[in-house]
Amino acid sequence: MQQQPRSEVTSLEPEILHLLDVAVEVSGHGVAKAAALGRRMGSVGRPVLQLMLRPPVVSRTHQPGTWLDDLSRQGGLRRAELARRLGSVLDVVVPGLVEQVLRRLDATGLIHTYVDLDEVITEVDIEAVVSRVDLVTLVKEVIDELDLPEMVRESTSAMASESVRGLRMHSISGDDAIGRAIARVRSRRVVDGTLTPPDGSPGPAGTTLP
């Protein structure tokens, strides 16, 4: 039962195509003739139209061509204003509209369904992407976060170097303690009025070179 309509359609197809071809040919012929006629009319009518728009006996301000130019200019201004207003309206409407549409769509699912991500990724120029990344700075930041020198020290340094490190830090602390003690003595003597430092310096704190 379902094969019969399909066979009818198949039998009708050549006739429809024939009629369609005829229509196309007639239309094409007509359009060509109309174009040719238009060109002839244009070549004949252009001087007439020019004469109507710019009559020689009428002053330029009262010529129809001048009126049409003014109308065209005002129309252009009105069109620009309309485009500006329309743009401002679209700026408000389109984002909200798109947001509402996207909210109702499963964009991720659509991409999974209709986009072959593997093919897209294979066409990506990974080297160009990598070349735009400042790898040196990136690696330095990672090393800084990990404190790699500290890890290397902890994993490779011998007990002797750890002892030296401790000795150095303790001696620095001792230096600071001595400096603070000297500063206390000096400030006490200043308060007692027995000694006034010539430069008013607070004490022997570690200083950098000038």
Binding site: R168, S171, I172, G174, D175, D176, I178, G179, P204, G206, T207, T208, L209
Partner: peptide
Amino acid sequence: YQGTTAGLLT
């Protein structure tokens, strides 16, 4: 402390 002047104990 690096670059600062060293104290007496050290």
